[in-house]
Measured scan of single mutants.
Amino acid sequence: GKMTGIVKWFNADKGFAFITPDDGSKDVFVHFSAIQNDGYKSLDEGQKVSFTIESGAKGPAAGNVTSL
């Protein structure tokens, strides 16, 4: 299901971020390909987002990341 959280930090050079979920679970890795914005895919620290949890090769990662 959809979860919500806050972007903890975003590394534009490497194209990934971490989200701190609102439910208090541990921070979730985000690859820029999961960001659903049109055009430039970036996130801002402190931004509120919704996302799903996908199981990636290196463990859980956020999918369908959308700005709220």
Rank of each mutant, 00 (worst) to 15 (best):
K41E: 11
E45G: 06
D44M: 12
S42P: 11
N37Q: 10
T4H: 06
I35E: 03
I19G: 00
K26E: 09
F32P: 02
G39R: 05
D22M: 07
D23A: 02
K14N: 02
S67H: 13
F10V: 15
D22K: 01
N11A: 06
D22C: 13
K26A: 08
F16W: 03
S33A: 10
I6W: 06
I6R: 05
S55V: 11
K14M: 05
G39P: 11
G15L: 10
T66D: 15
A34N: 13
K26S: 09
S25L: 03
V65Q: 12
F51S: 00
V65C: 15
S50C: 14
T66G: 14
G39A: 09
T4Y: 09
A61S: 12
A61L: 13
G46D: 02
K41Q: 11
K41H: 13
S25V: 02
W9C: 15
D38M: 08
F16P: 00
S25K: 04
A17F: 14
Y40A: 09
A17T: 01
I53S: 06
K41I: 13
G5Y: 01
D27A: 08
E54I: 03
P21E: 01
K58Q: 15
G63P: 12
F10Y: 13
P60W: 01
F32I: 11
K58P: 15
F16R: 00
S67N: 09
K2S: 11
N11Y: 05
F29T: 08
W9I: 04
F29Q: 09
G15D: 04
G59K: 11
F18Y: 12
S55I: 10
H31I: 10
K48C: 13
G59M: 06
A17H: 00
G15F: 07
D44A: 13
N37C: 14
F10H: 05
D38S: 11
W9S: 07
F10K: 12
S42T: 10
K48Q: 10
Q36F: 09
Q36E: 13
A62N: 10
P60S: 04
S50R: 06
G46L: 03
L68H: 13
K8F: 04
G1K: 10
N37S: 11
K8C: 13
A62P: 12
G39T: 07
L68N: 15
G46N: 05
F32A: 06
D13G: 06
K58M: 15
N64G: 07
T52K: 07
V49E: 00
G46K: 02
A57W: 11
V65K: 06
D23F: 04
E54H: 02
S50A: 12
P60I: 03
G46Y: 04
N37G: 09
Q36H: 12
T52N: 07
V65W: 01
L68A: 14
D23Q: 03
G46E: 02
G59E: 15
K48H: 13
L68E: 15
K48N: 06
A57R: 05
S33Q: 07
I6F: 07
K8M: 05
P60M: 03
F18K: 08
D27H: 04
A62G: 07
F51R: 00
K26D: 09
N11T: 06
K2P: 11
H31N: 14
F16A: 02
Q36S: 08
E54K: 02
G1F: 08
K48S: 12
W9T: 04
V7G: 00
D38F: 07
T20Q: 09
I35C: 12
V30Y: 06
K41C: 15
F18H: 07
G46H: 03
E45R: 09
V65H: 12
P21I: 05
M3T: 06
E54L: 02
S25W: 03
V7P: 00
S25T: 07
V7E: 00
A12N: 12
T20D: 01
N11F: 06
G5L: 01
F10S: 14
I35N: 02
G15Q: 13
L68S: 15
I19L: 04
D27W: 05
M3P: 03
F18C: 15
W9K: 05
I19Y: 00
D22N: 04
D44W: 14
K26M: 08
M3E: 03
T4S: 06
K58A: 15
F16M: 14
A34W: 12
A34M: 14
G59C: 15
G24M: 03
S25E: 05
I35M: 06
A62W: 06
G1R: 07
G5V: 02
V65P: 05
I6L: 04
G24S: 03
G56T: 14
F29H: 06
K2F: 13
I6H: 05
V30P: 00
A34K: 11
N11P: 01
V30T: 01
D44T: 12
T4W: 08
A57S: 14
A17I: 06
T66L: 03
I6N: 03
D22W: 03
V65A: 06
E45N: 11
Q36Y: 11
F10I: 15
G63M: 09
K26C: 14
M3Q: 08
I19P: 00
Q47C: 13
G5K: 00
V7L: 13
D22P: 01
Y40L: 13
Y40R: 05
A34H: 13
D23P: 01
G1I: 07
T4N: 05
F51G: 00
F18D: 01
G15V: 02
F32N: 03
G5E: 01
H31Y: 14
G24V: 01
I35Q: 03
S33M: 05
N64D: 14
K41D: 11
I19T: 00
A62M: 08
W9Y: 13
V7T: 01
Q47R: 07
N64I: 12
Y40P: 09
V30A: 03
G59A: 10
K41N: 12
D38T: 07
S50T: 12
W9R: 03
I35A: 02
S42Q: 13
K8A: 06
A57G: 13
D22Q: 04
D13T: 08
L68C: 15
A17D: 00
K48W: 14
E54A: 02
V28P: 00
F16S: 02
F32S: 06
A61C: 15
N64S: 11
G56K: 03
A34V: 09
G24H: 04
P60V: 04
K58T: 15
D44N: 12
G1P: 09
H31M: 14
W9Q: 03
N37A: 11
F29P: 03
A61N: 12
D22I: 06
P21Y: 04
F10A: 14
D22H: 04
P60R: 00
D13L: 10
G15C: 15
K26Y: 05
G24E: 03
P21F: 04
N37T: 11
S50Y: 12
D22S: 07
D22V: 04
S42H: 12
S33L: 08
F29M: 15
V28I: 13
D13A: 09
E54Y: 03
K26W: 05
S55N: 09
F51L: 02
I19Q: 00
F51V: 03
D22G: 03
E54D: 09
G63F: 03
K2E: 11
S55W: 08
P60H: 05
K48Y: 08
S55G: 13
A62L: 09
A62Q: 12
K41G: 10
P60C: 14
V65G: 12
T52E: 13
I53K: 05
G1M: 09
